[in-house]
Every structure is written in C-alpha cells, then in structure tokens.
Nucleic acid binder design. Sequence first.
DNA 1: ATAAATTAGTTGACTAATCAACTATATTTT
DNA 2: AAAATATAGTTGATTAGTCAACTAATTTAT
Lengths: 153, 153
Amino acid sequence: MKKRKFFLTKAIFDIYRNSLAYISSRVAQFGIGRGQWYFINHLLFGRDGISQEQLSKELFVDSAHTARAVKKLEDGGFVFRKPDLRDARKKNVYVTEKAIAIKDDYHKLYQDLNKILVDGFTPEELKLVRSFFYRMRKNIVSYMGNSERDFPR
Amino acid sequence: MKKRKFFLTKAIFDIYRNSLAYISSRVAQFGIGRGQWYFINHLLFGRDGISQEQLSKELFVDSAHTARAVKKLEDGGFVFRKPDLRDARKKNVYVTEKAIAIKDDYHKLYQDLNKILVDGFTPEELKLVRSFFYRMRKNIVSYMGNSERDFPR
DNA sequence: ATAAATTAGTTGACTAATCAACTATATTTT
DNA sequence: AAAATATAGTTGATTAGTCAACTAATTTAT
C-alpha cells in the first residue's frame, strides 16, 4: 500500500464529515435537522437577533438555504423572525424559549465533540490548535473575499 | 459585539465550506461536479482500482452517493468500472486516460488551496499542522467506529 | 449440503445546499 | 425628483448526500 502525500484538504474533509455525522445524529433528538443545527447554534451562542443575510454571511451559506432552514426552525418553534426596524427588507432571527431550554444540552454536544477531537493533546498543543485553526480560517475566508471582520470568532 | 468562545467545530466548518467553494468553482472547468471531485481525487492520487465500497469507507460517504457519483464520473469518461475477479458483488473503479490527462492541473488546484490555507506558517508550524490534523482525524474517525487502518493518509 | 445471515451495489424517497430568477425595498446616479 | 442600480429574502430548479428498501452474491450457521 503506497504511502501517499498528506493533503490538508483531505484531513479537513474527513474531520468535517465525521464531525457532521456525530452532530447530526445527536441533534435529531431535539427535533432539529442536519441542515439547521448550525443556524440555531449560531443564534444560541451569541448572535441572537441578527438578520438572515448576516446569518448567511457568517455561516458561509447561500441565502436560499438560510431562508429555508430558518423557516424550518421557525415552524419547529425554535426561532421567530421580525422585520428590522430600519430596513423593511431585513428579517432578524431570534431564539425562542424552546430553543433556550435546550441550550445547555446542546452546548454539551459541542463540548463532547471537542473533547473527542482534541483527545491526547496537551494544554500547550491546544493553544496551538486554536491559533492554527483561527489563522487558516482567516486565510481562506479572506482569500474567498468573505469578510471575517464582520463577526467575531 | 460580544466576544465568543472559540468552537473548533465552527472553525472546521468554516474552513471546510470555504475550501469547498474554492474547489467546486474550479473543478467545474474539467466538467466535474461538486459531488464528484473528491472521488476522482482519491482515485487519481493513489487509490486507483479500489472497490466502490472502499471508496465509500475512505471518503466517509454513503454507498448510494458513491454509486451515483461514480456513475456520473463514468458517464463523463473519467472512470470505468469492472467487477472484482474474486467477488462478483464488488465493482472496482479505475481512472481513464481522460482523467490522467488532467491530473497535473488537478493537483495544482489542491496545492494552491493548500498554500492559501497555510499562508504565513513557518516550516516548523507546518509540521505541527500536519501532526495535529492527522491526530484529530484519527480521534474522530476512531470514535465514530470507522477504521483508519484500512487506508493510508 | 442447505438455510440463514451478511454484504456490495442499486434504486427510491427524502433532506440539504447551490445557482438562478424574481419581488419589494433601499441606495445611488442622473 | 426620477431613474437606475443594488440589496434581502423568497421561490424554482437542480445537484448533492443520507436513510431505507431491495437484489444478487457471498459467508456463516445449522
């Protein structure tokens, strides 16, 4: 079996797919689908009330997808939408009590996944991991013309 | 703007999405779709002739998707399939001359993306990046019950 | 040797995600 | 001020990807 060159993209791809499988199978218990978890995550953990457009930008997904995903979350009672007071085109998305009620369980999911990913890493290595990921993200996001300044990490 | 906790999953997700956008828009010129590039990549760079089942395992995707993606690549002239000599259920997938003809250009795409991702990293940091990614991938893949021993990185 | 269970790939049904086109609203240009 | 252009969200069409059910081939159990 021939030794292959290490492709960063393959590793990213593999980590992503496995992480996605992990999360998706677990958010189902909350009645949240594979295509919505990251929206509610984003809203629950600090970005409540932002517009759909901003959600699209911050999650690097298409507005069509955002509109549909947010609608599903709204139908499921996890969010509600209100037009922006200064711009009637904009719809701001807010979490409901139902969403807040699962916040801790939800958060635990992420922590558990995080622990799996960094199992065996020293605290010093963890610092490096964070730094490297932040920098790589910044590199690709900037390159693709997406502004990362618009939102915090 | 409130400072948020750094979630590794969000960084992975962001890097993945932006990288996917980068690759997908560029492989289109070869007549390869968003859902197929990583299959042909895998075959071109060292795994020519493996079965569909193995492709699914190594790429962490569902056999239904593999069957369809491989069929598209076959229809596009990039691969051909042959039944395995020892197990009539298995179909092995091979690259064609057409695929080999684009190998270098294809490879350049990956290198360019890699350069973008690791821009500003020192050689020492690069070594760490590789090690960290390898370990994290191993962590999640093992946790999910997928064997990484079956294929090299 | 035969029956039962498992496996590899395919097809169906569904959700997810992108690209395109559109409408209403807002901003910029004339 | 009116016209032209850009923007935010929605809908349509399409591709991608998963879960489920199925068939044919293989392996395991009886």
